[in-house]
Design a protein around this nucleic acid. Structure first.
Lengths: 115, 115
DNA sequence: TGGTGTGGTATCTTTTATGATACCGGGGAG
DNA sequence: CTCCCCGGTATCATAAAAGATACCACACCA
């Protein structure tokens, strides 16, 4: 029936989330809604135009975000989560929750090692 | 109060799961319990010894898995999930569930494009 | 005596991801 | 006229991840 091994599914999700700037892009779009290119760029210190473009394109390719071009001058391009993209939210939340505990744990370790 | 940006938490989780062989290692250990090195290796076609060692060491470093060496000849080394490692299960399950739908979606897209 | 199984290391090469930098068109501000 | 803003592209360089290959000690088996 199903020939694809189980772990491939996990890797599918992982491959979409993996990328230096993708998690933060997704969090911005989820939490603050539709954003313009430079708006995102300003909120992500350190990212270069090229990298931001690339990561956005890859997310768009997977139908996680939608890119809307307004035929104006100067150009206006907006990025928004798709419904499909929003289906990633449980994963991001699970990771966020886990990460919170991970941070706490690290702190405790540091304390015990310095005491 | 909290100076660490929210997305860092997500990236913490991601950084632990990311690695070509880590998801499958974790799934094997979760589903089949403690495993020896070569036992894992045989279940992961294509992995080289070096890569398997590296990924296992990284997971051990993060306290996700535990490495037990039995002072025998020939050597016997076992890998097992730690309790902490098992706390990743909700994330892996969320990704697995998402991946299942992702696969279905891709298939549907192919069908509509070839019809 | 030579080959096998165990759990690795040490090098080297290739592939992939990320980054720095320069450039673009065209309107609007000064 | 000159510069900036916007949302990019193109080129080149670097860093990081992954892979190929060879080697190791030791005991066991035949």
């Amino acid at each position: 029936m199903e020939k694809v091994p189980e772990q491939c599914r996990v890797e599918d999700a992982l491959s979409i989330l993996t990328g230096k700037w993708k998690p933060i892009i997704l969090l911005h779009l989820l939490q603050e809604g539709t954003q313009r290119f430079n708006e995102l760029k300003r909120k992500m210190p350190g990212v270069t135009q090229k990298m931001l473009t690339k990561q956005l394109r890859e997310l768009e390719e997977e139908d996680i975000i939608a890119r809307t071009i307004y035929p104006q001058v100067p150009p206006k391009v907006e990025y928004a989560m798709t419904d499909y993209g929003r289906s990633l939210e449980p994963i991001l939340e699970a990771m966020h929750e886990w990460g919170r505990n991970h941070t706490l744990r690290k702190r405790q370790k540091q304390q015990t090692s310095t005491s």
